[in-house]
């Protein structure tokens, strides 16, 4: 699949933003006044920034409001509604925290659940596609949700929570890679079933339908970068999980001062964000759409 930067940015930034909103809503940290404003500003900048970025991959962004209509069948529609409701509920909660100095517990918990649910709906957009076997399994939502929660804990400065959650996210990401690498073969779909000619011999693409490229090849048969996939996976995992855990462990040392603490935590967040970005790039670039089989490619 074509790794569109707008979509990768969206899932990376919004995932982290909604993760932070979840921790704020659950009252794990309870800032008030200016402190609360800064926390909520960061969370909203990430979540809303990601959502805005996602509209750039639309052919007709001016019609984006129409996308809220089909929640009965469409995960994209559900995602849009969930995101807006989560942001509204958490917005009310933020007003209480910033201006009134109170934390409306029930509202916060509802907002936190909706925030996590938004990330779940994002994951389900990809998971629903039978046409992309690498995505069509439980490891996709497990990976999106665990990374969202781990990122939220990391950004919220919850060191003791973040370390085990990051390890959990690493396991989910690894599972997604291990299961995904075998998914196309396991799906049973090949050139034989695609053409219906498989039972009469070995099918080979002899001539493509066109001499140039087309939308299908550009969107679904993206093969650039697969050569370096193994190295990129190591880089992604290192930046997303290993480096943040090491940096967080350093902050726990008694000799580290308060300022250095903050610098290390900020570095951990940045490293994590870059790592997730790399992993999400691979999520798309490595995904094989079955339409590639018609072109003898995958």
């Amino acid at each position: 699949m074509h790794p569109a930067p707008s979509v990768i940015l969206f899932s990376t930034l919004s995932g982290l933003g909604f993760g932070l909103l979840a921790f704020l809503g659950l009252g794990v940290l309870q800032p008030t006044g200016m402190g609360a404003f800064i926390w909520f500003f960061i969370a909203y900048a990430l979540a809303v920034g990601g959502l805005i970025s996602s509209t750039f991959h639309l052919g007709r962004p001016e019609r984006a409001l129409k996308a809220f209509k089909q929640w009965r069948s469409s995960w994209l529609s559900r995602e849009g509604i969930c995101a807006v409701v989560a942001l509204l509920v958490m917005g009310l909660y933020a007003i209480g925290a910033i201006f009134l100095g109170t934390h409306w517990t029930v509202l916060g918990v509802v907002g936190a659940v909706l925030s996590v649910l938004t990330v779940f709906t994002t994951a389900m957009i990809y998971t629903q596609f039978k046409t992309v076997p690498r995505w069509h399994n439980i490891t996709t939502p497990a990976m999106f949700l665990s990374i969202c929660i781990a990122g939220g804990a990391l950004l919220a400065g919850q060191v003791t929570l973040a370390i085990p959650l990051l390890i959990l996210a690493a396991l989910a990401q690894l599972a997604h890679w291990v299961v995904g690498d075998k998914a196309l073969e396991a799906s049973g779909t090949d050139m034989g079933t695609a053409t219906g000619l498989g039972d009469r011999g070995t099918v080979r693409a002899f001539e493509p339908p066109h001499t140039g490229t087309n939308y299908l090849l550009k969107e679904f048969v993206y093969v650039i970068g697969r050569k370096h996939a193994a190295k990129l996976r190591i880089v992604a995992m290192g930046l997303m999980v290993v480096a943040p855990i090491v940096l967080l462990a350093l902050t726990q040392l008694a000799s580290v001062s308060g300022t250095a603490d903050h610098v290390l935590a900020a570095l951990a967040v940045i490293s994590h964000l870059v790592g997730v970005f790399a992993a999400r790039w691979l999520f798309f670039a490595q995904a094989e759409h079955v339409v590639g089989l018609y072109y003898g490619k995958r």
Binding site: T195, R200, G201, V203, A205, F206, Y295
Partner: peptide
């Protein structure tokens, strides 16, 4: 599309 099928 055009395919070549080679029987076994």
């Amino acid at each position: 599309h055009s395919y070549e099928v080679q029987p076994a």
